[in-house]
Design a protein around this nucleic acid. Structure first.
Lengths: 353, 353
DNA sequence: TCGATTCGACGAACCGATTCGACGAAGCGC
DNA sequence: GCGCTTCGTCGAATCGGTTCGTCGAATCGA
């Protein structure tokens, strides 16, 4: 493996000159620069990251804390990881994955070893111990999600406004004429873990219920399919029957849809279903009214905030306003007057693999 | 930030002694070791990764090349990334994500900078340029997937035996009494990119067709939903009508199922559906006969092979034999005699969130 | 023509660990 | 009591870059 010394020798210059040609931090004559570049190309030279990092105290790496709860996997997490990696590269940073179950130890290890310059935390919870630990270390951090906004005032974050998103869904549903609806919230374990999106979603449902005067029954989801099925059945069969189901916990959506079908309920005539926080380009999902999770926007933002934090910028907070996807609005109780729809149609997507 | 020198000073020893206490590569008296450990704890010392790497030429990092085709996103990629990260940590390695669209440049940059000690490549294709480039560099590499097995003889890989998997599906389907079936292969662009799984799946279908004498029509899938729908409709409506559909391209599965329903076909009486491979998190997917993709096993294996390769071990190849999932066998044409099943039941999963 | 300024390149210190050779003290046999 | 080995520790070289101070040569104005 060629070193900067080899390049310098071949080009007939000092190692420092090679370094200056590469970094551009001092003027070097065009002739010399050309010779150096030729030597670099001939030797296939690439600077050793460790040497550069050792001297400059910059690794050009971000570490991403991926949530990992006992074997559970959320499709969103992988998607975010990939998009954040793309965004980080756009800033000249590589992305290291940190998937240790309890992220605190792993993050401290990475932070104190200097392997990364900043951390990006996913699935932030209220009073998240990772935030406190990194803050104590003075380690640049950006959060994907937020808790109650107080303990994170010293740290940058970006989040979909989940409270507003659920509230928007309730308002739109009420505006379409629905008076009784079920809000299918995050799962028990997410609420217990005090994940920001779970708590904010619940708060948004309560606020919007009060504002619209609609009858909104809040029902947490469950990880266990049997339990989930039982709760859903109870919620939908209650009298008077709800005419709309607003779903934040999307992972078991196929199961929800199947159960709705098994109960003999037609969508949307007997029951309208509104999704909150769906991935924007899932091929072949049913064409339901929904509020998309802006994965690309959030990923780009959080990577940018992490890079800013490395530069010592003051913390910033981005709360993204929810928007209804344009493809499909909430349909009134009894379904649209113009066409029967016994089977939900599948929509087209340009991003399906 | 404390350095090894600070620790040495506080403990009243030489820096080298601290290093030996940490690495254990020389005997140090228990008294001295205790003093050093105390100093480390008091100062919150952690060795700088860059200094260690510079000296030892080992970064303890693997780089994972995640396939990235022009904005397309495959749900399984994130799942594999997370599981491989877990497996790598089990060997003491961290995982760096490489998501640049054309992986070759990015991989070479990481490899030559010494940021990682080995590479793991996903979605390997026949004559994959990444394999050749890394091999030329002498960079330790392990592949998830394989091409035709010739050009990769110098590199370790692990793969599900896709040919055997599809063949098994055809055999089981034929054994259940089906004589006419459609094999729904990988999408056009995957076949054009000569991805190993796509080509091997096609080969397995042809072999098994000859072996069983069944009428197996091979139909590649498509990324475009309209195109896909048209092909599916043509394949299912052809005379004589097929009684089974074997699906390798699972990503648009909801769309496939909806189209089958829209054609008025009942599963399994009119059309049995057999799945080859898995989706990342499908709690509540329909209980169809399937051959699972062993994600955990493959991830652990590929991480292990990469670590082995760093140690200079000879390349090894693991071809995993396919197994039918136990939950549900292939049902005969006309459906099971004992019970009608107008709506496919949803199955339970222990891995659902 | 001479002193002041600018330009381009060099040399050496430095970042923080690892690791090898060396060395003093203690333990051993005779 | 003397030489030899063993044990525990130290000091210094080393990995490969970056960066600051310096210095000779060229350029400039008076």
């Amino acid at each position: 493996m060629a070193t900067i010394k080899d390049v310098a020798e071949r080009a007939g210059v000092a190692p420092s000159t090679v370094s200056y040609v590469l970094s551009g931090s001092r003027r070097i004559s065009e002739d010399t620069a050309k010779a150096v570049r030729a030597a670099i190309a001939e030797l296939g030279y690439h600077p050793r990251a460790s040497a550069r990092t050792l001297r400059s105290a910059r690794s050009e790496v971000l570490v991403l804390a991926v949530p990992r709860e006992s074997g559970k996997y959320r499709a969103m997490d992988g998607r975010f990881a990939i998009e954040i990696s793309d965004a980080a590269r756009g800033h000249g940073y590589d992305l290291l994955m940190m998937t240790e179950p309890d992220g605190v130890d792993g993050l401290l290890r990475i932070a104190r070893s200097g392997l990364a310059d900043a951390a990006v935390l996913m699935a932030v919870a209220q009073a998240d111990p990772r935030v406190a630990a990194l803050h104590e270390l003075g380690f640049p951090t950006a959060l994907l999600g937020h808790g109650d906004g107080r303990e994170e005032s010293g740290v940058s974050w970006v989040d979909l406004d989940w409270a507003a998103a659920v509230a928007l869904a309730v308002h739109e549903t009420a505006a379409a004429g629905h008076r009784r609806m079920v809000f299918w919230a995050s799962a028990d374990h997410e609420i217990e873990a005090r994940r920001g999106y779970a708590l904010h979603g619940l708060a948004g449902a309560r606020t919007a219920a009060a504002e619209t005067g609609a009858d909104v029954r809040v029902q947490p989801s469950a990880a266990d399919p049997a339990l989930l099925r039982g709760r859903l059945r109870a919620a939908l069969m209650a009298a008077p029957a709800p005419t709309a189901l607003i779903v934040q916990h999307l992972i078991p959506l196929p199961l929800l849809l199947a159960e709705v079908a098994a109960l003999g309920l037609r969508v949307p005539q007997d029951l309208e279903i509104v999704l909150v926080g769906s991935l924007p380009d899932e091929p072949g999902g049913p064409a339901l009214p929904r509020i998309d999770l802006p994965v690309g926007q959030m990923s780009a933002a959080v990577a940018g905030l992490a890079v800013e934090a490395i530069g010592g910028a003051a913390p910033r907070h981005e709360l993204i306003a929810p928007r209804m996807a344009e493809s499909q609005g909430v349909r009134p109780p009894g379904g649209p007057a113009d066409r029967p729809a016994p089977v939900p149609r599948m929509e087209t997507q340009n991003r399906c693999d």
